[in-house]
Amino acid sequence: MSRFLNEPALQYTQQTQTAVLLLNLGTPDAPTAQAVKPYLKEFLSDQRVVELPTLLWQPILRGLVLTLRPKKSAHGYQKIWFDQGSPLAVYTERQTQALAAALPNIIVRHAMTYGNPSVADVLEDLKNQGVGKLLVIPLYPQYAASSTGAAVDKVLAQLLQQRNQMSLRTVSRFYDDSGYIDAMAQHIQAYWSQNGRGEKLMLSFHGIPQKNHDDGDPYPDECRHTARLLAQRLGLSEDDYVVSFQSQFGKAKWIAPSTQTLFKQLPKQGITKLDVFCPGFTADCLETMEEIALAGREEFHEAGGKQYHYIPCLNDNPAWIAALTDLAKRNLQGWE
């Protein structure tokens, strides 16, 4: 049996289409423990995500983690699930459709690093449509090996199996992209004009283990750079905002300060009116809607906070779609 996938019934001269592939993390197909378990198994089995020896980690994962966590995660998903499905899936689909409308001569699709639609299935479909040039944009503004790296790995793994490989371009990061920064600033200012402004703006990013950063992962540096650019665009002083990192998992030391720790500390420091925005997430998901918008509100109020505003992610905001379109066009130059 050949190690390579069968090529579609197309002449090589017909494989001339250009495509943009948007990549996001992924989501279970339903807000149930039965659906969450295989999703978590795939996600937490990726050595980009958990950098422990397989023989050490897999027994823990298959035993304790996959016994307890699916039910807990499913409960969180149930709180935020839309009628149309998972918020992350819904918003990523909307971003894809909007980008496709802005790039009428380019095939635009999306895939998930884990879950559906899978990278393997989408690339097979693109092959069958005659795509020979592929621009991959992971929807993570700041590069981390566990997010962008894992997403690109999935694409490269499929190219390793292609006999006639597609030409490939990737966007590894866009943390300092002016369109992205401007879209966030406009979005936050619009929210403030309608809902008022708190005493401090918290910019909460997903966290990574401290060891990953010590070993050369640039992620927290890029997060802080994004925060500085956004603060400058909003006209904020250093006292007006705080950068934090959420979603810690396991017992290892993670980059600080912790979002959850600050929820408890800020009211004691006299900050009782807090606005929270998550610049590292381009679409709302479990980590923003449940962990920050719902649980974060409870933690802040329990600590003495009086007013808590969660500012939604960019999602399908027109300014963000325009920035994403510009990002794609710049990286498609010579292919269009």
Rank of each mutant, 00 (worst) to 15 (best):
N317V: 12
Q97P: 10
D217L: 05
L230A: 01
Q307H: 12
L55W: 15
K41Q: 15
E287S: 07
G26H: 01
Q265V: 14
G207S: 14
M166A: 05
P104I: 11
A227N: 03
Y140T: 07
L44A: 05
R109T: 08
S204F: 03
A231R: 04
S193F: 09
L99Y: 02
L22K: 02
F174W: 09
S178R: 13
A89I: 05
N6T: 13
E7C: 06
L236S: 01
L123Y: 00
L139E: 05
Q14S: 14
Q97L: 13
S172R: 14
Y191I: 06
I271H: 03
K253P: 09
Q14W: 06
L66M: 10
W254H: 08
F281I: 09
T67E: 10
S244V: 05
L160H: 13
L103T: 08
S244F: 01
S73Y: 04
G334N: 09
D121P: 06
H309R: 14
I60Q: 07
Q11D: 15
A328R: 01
V108S: 01
L66I: 13
L22C: 04
T261L: 14
L230Q: 00
Y114H: 03
W320C: 11
E290C: 10
P267S: 05
F82Q: 10
A323V: 11
K133Y: 08
A252S: 12
G149Q: 07
G235L: 11
M1V: 14
P31S: 08
P267T: 07
L135W: 01
G235Y: 01
T16C: 11
D326W: 03
L135V: 02
T282M: 12
V122C: 09
D121Q: 14
S258Q: 08
T259S: 12
I208A: 04
Y12A: 14
E291Y: 02
T27R: 07
T170K: 10
L203F: 09
G26M: 00
Y140M: 06
F174D: 00
K154C: 10
L123F: 03
A157H: 13
F43M: 06
G196E: 09
N105A: 13
Y143K: 01
G280V: 05
